[in-house]
Amino acid sequence: MTVSSEQHIEGKRDVTFRVFRLNPQVDSKPYFDDYTIPVERGITVLRALNYIKENIDASVSYRVFCQAGICGSCGMRINGISKLACTTQVWDELPKCREAGIIKIEPLRNLPLLKDLIVDMDPLVGKMKHYRNWVESSMPEPEMGKKEFLVSEEEFSRYDKATDCILCASCVSECSILRANKEYVSPAVLLKSYRMNVDTRDSLHDVRLAELVQDHGVWDCTHCYRCQETCVKNIPIMEAIHGIREDAIECRGLKDTAGAKHAEAFMSDIEKKGKLVEATLPFRTNGVAWTVKNLLPMAVKMILKRRTPPPPPLVKSSKGMKQFREEFREMTEHVKDDHKTHNK
């Protein structure tokens, strides 16, 4: 930060923006253009792009609307991380440049590229439709408008934070599974699905859940936490993902998928004994990686909730067991941190 405080005093300097370019009408492959402009302290990346567009190259294309961090239009990758251009100060990015003084600007990943920094949002909207990301009111339409639902503070708080989502797709761009599988449900859609499922006014819970446990659904997530770390509104997306999984296990009749079946045995073990028994650990059949990504976070959460100390897995240690222990410790820290930051 010393660099930036010196610059604070200086107040103005030249900055190079290395911008990803592709116009599908003429370019067969993408390239980068460098624009070096004078920037004063207090300028956002978006304003810098506006300056470039107005004064140097009018063809640089990006989406922008509110300029206030609320419409979700201006998601792009700045120095490699997906975020909103309109809420990002150039000065804050300077210390993060890989090459000094050069800020790299690229489009979001995991959505089809249309031009320069513009990606197609339709696939995301398609998924919102597929997973029924709306409240299916338990009130019949002719009755609507006559009376309010009664919603307690506690019920409201279950979905309050999730409704902050502005569909900027930054989390989508950073999701590790989406890179490999474009059909994956997407973090933002999981978040919205969860928000609908915990709403007491909704009546579509089971249908939505049944879809979420299918292929490309909630069991595909690797728990890499990238989405949550990226979210421009600091929404605890992982809470939603854990929530859907716990829900899927608790819900009778939805257990028929492989994921849910193993999970149930594993979880009930913890529930009954407060500890893990190697004999029932599903990694024998599913491998360590699967167990870690799908079950551990939930198990840790349950244990933390109950305040029982994390139980040491019993029985003699094998190679798998050792790895499992390590992962277990790491995940406990992650989930604990999460609790600290996001618990009301």
């Binding site: 009755e143 639902f149 919603v151 409201f156 409704t163």
Partner: peptide, 18 residues
């Protein structure tokens, strides 16, 4: 009320009304 019935997350009072 109609918006409430369709899912708008209105903030609530202690008596659970909007």
């Amino acid at each position: 009320r109609e918006l409430d019935n369709m899912g708008t997350p209105w903030s609530r009072l202690d008596d659970k009304t909007i």
